[in-house]
């Protein structure tokens, strides 16, 4: 069952300084939305609000499943995932980090092991399974962060600058991973990046955040709906 995320008139200000003003948008397609904008434009803020980590000052965020509006509770929260630019690494093994989202969902141990193996394989960290997560390189850390978010097979996945501080090789690994996910066609992915090349390589739909406003870039994605 696919989930649609709808933003209506989102407004957010920090200390009187507006960051988002009347943002409206509907993420109703499977695939990858790439959100761009200058530093401080409010991209991370928007993702945090969409991922239900923060409340907007005004406006509404709603999630729909086949036109039914979903109640905003932990079950909904558990179908979405956000990877922050700074991966919060738990001081445990790589496998334990990746197993975490499954453990808090009280999934049986055998299933946990199976899915952890599978997802580590996907991000290419199988051989680092038992390594302490804090000792990973930043590229590996980023991949582990992805694996940890993907292991629950989220309906909506937010990625905030997933390749910000890593080398070309790891960037390539992550981009290929994104392409694989897209081919599987399961999730809606909304990511930010400062790399125009990356946006073109992986993105299906391009969005800009400027002066607190969210707008589509029609050069790339004609099908995107615009509200307001």
């Amino acid at each position: 069952m696919s989930i649609v995320l709808k933003l209506e008139n989102l407004t957010k200000a920090y200390g009187g300084k507006p960051v988002l003003t009347h943002c409206s948008f509907s993420f109703d397609k499977k695939g990858i939305y790439v959100l761009r904008g200058s530093n401080g434009a409010g991209k991370s803020t928007l993702l945090r609000i969409c991922a239900l980590l923060e409340m907007p000052d005004k406006g509404k965020i709603s999630f729909y499943s086949a036109n039914d509006r979903l109640a905003r509770n932990i079950d909904l929260q558990r179908q979405i995932s956000l990877v922050l630019p700074k991966v919060g690494v738990f001081n445990r093994s790589v496998a334990a980090n990746v197993a975490y989202p499954l453990k808090i969902r009280h999934i049986a141990q055998r299933e946990v092991s199976r899915r952890v193996e599978q997802i580590l394989e996907l991000v290419g960290l199988s051989h680092k399974k038992n390594q302490q997560a804090l000792t990973l390189s930043s590229g590996e850390t980023q991949r582990m962060g992805m694996a940890r978010a993907l292991v629950i097979e989220p309906e909506i996945l937010f990625l905030d600058e997933p390749t910000a501080s890593i080398d070309d090789e790891n960037t390539l690994i992550i981009e290929n991973l994104l392409k694989t996910l897209k081919q599987n066609g399961r999730a809606t992915i909304i990511m930010t990046t400062h790399d125009p090349g990356q946006a073109n390589r992986v993105g299906d739909y391009l969005l800009w955040l400027k002066n607190g406003q969210l707008m589509t870039d029609f050069r790339k994605c004609e099908e995107v709906n615009m509200y307001g």
């Binding site: 991922a51 980590l53 932990i74 929260q77 558990r78 995932s81 956000l82 990877v83 922050l84 700074k86 991966v87 919060g88 690494v89 738990f90 975490y100 989202p101 808090i104 969902r105 940890r148 978010a149 629950i152």
Partner: peptide
């Protein structure tokens, strides 16, 4: 970020 990470992962 630990707390944030936990929340983003559905805790």
């Amino acid at each position: 970020v630990i707390r944030q990470a936990a929340l983003t992962l559905g805790a």
